[in-house]
């Protein structure tokens, strides 16, 4: 894989019994760029995410992640907490999965578990307040505060996350994922259920993550206003295979993509487009 690629999916296949959810899928996500994975419902996008984050073991194919320091990780061989700890991949789900009974600040602190574990030397030193650990905890609170400010929730730091409005919970989830200090941030439909104003704020947040922090983002999204505005590269899937990829402009004009979304034959779609324009 080339230096500019952070994630390289090669001939990924995922079968569940006789059903092929993803077939021979290959694509790459560039470093410090936003890559979107789009396609109609049931196209296999979330299955790809689940393979990347260790929920599924792919039936075939490889998923390689290259850190900035050149270290390459075989993601299909990792699972569980190692995805966050070793691979530095963070992810959110379609539904909100905050810890509802914990405060916003605590949610962000849990995400810094590994930094705090390192500081306490993987022992109970942290519990009795060793000085190195105190500093680490201060830093962790600093980072969490910084993220709460970015997502405009600083004044509600000590409220239970479950009591937040839907849009606030969405932003808090992204903040929490970012607190793991990931190399790759995977977002599964972050704009689902947001109104137009909240979607615009989300786009702005994701762009600032890319531009200011240089974090690479892989995104599944149905809200085309968000996808087209922020994506650097788009991969389109349908029925488990890749049907197109390219810049937002290229993808928007691709007849295969339109056909997939409108549910018609390619020829018909072309006819529709030509007739319409």
């Amino acid at each position: 894989m080339s230096r500019d690629e952070i994630l390289s999916v090669d001939r990924l296949t995922m079968r569940f019994g006789g059903i092929v959810a993803v077939q021979d899928l290959s694509f790459a996500a560039e470093r410090k760029k936003i890559t979107a994975l789009i396609g109609p419902n049931g196209a296999g996008k979330t299955t790809v995410f689940n393979c990347i984050t260790g929920f599924y073991k792919p039936s075939d194919g490889t998923i390689r992640l290259a850190h900035d320091d050149g270290k390459v990780i075989a993601l299909e061989r990792l699972n569980d907490f190692r995805i966050a700890k070793q691979a530095k991949v963070a992810r959110t789900f379609q539904n909100i999965r905050l810890f509802p009974g914990m405060t916003a600040l605590e949610n962000l602190m849990v995400a810094q578990h590994n930094a705090l574990m390192r500081a306490s030397g993987f022992t109970l030193l942290g519990l009795i307040g060793a000085p190195g650990y105190r500093d680490a905890e201060k830093r962790a609170i600093g980072l969490a505060t910084d993220w709460l400010r970015r997502v405009n929730l600083l004044d509600r730091a000590d409220d239970a996350a479950g009591n937040f409005a839907y849009g606030d919970q969405r932003r808090l989830e992204i903040a929490r994922a970012m607190c793991t200090e990931p190399a790759l941030l995977c977002l599964d439909e972050p704009a689902a259920g947001l109104n137009a104003r909240e979607s615009a704020a989300l786009s702005e947040l994701l762009l600032s993550i890319r531009n200011e922090l240089g974090t690479s983002i892989l995104l599944i999204e149905h809200d085309m206003s968000v996808v087209m505005e922020i994506s650097d590269h788009i991969v389109v899937m349908d029925h488990g295979v890749k049907i197109a990829e390219g810049s937002p402009r290229e993808v928007r004009d691709d007849p295969k993509v339109i056909a997939a979304y409108l549910g018609t034959d390619e020829e018909e779609a072309v006819a529709v487009m030509e007739g319409g324009s």
Partner: peptide, 19 residues
């Protein structure tokens, strides 16, 4: 914090790096 997080959602806690 880790214990409470695992109590509420083990999968999510693991994804955030909690063993």
């Amino acid at each position: 914090r880790d214990m409470r997080a695992c109590e509420q959602d083990q999968t999510m806690a693991a994804l955030l790096g909690v063993n």
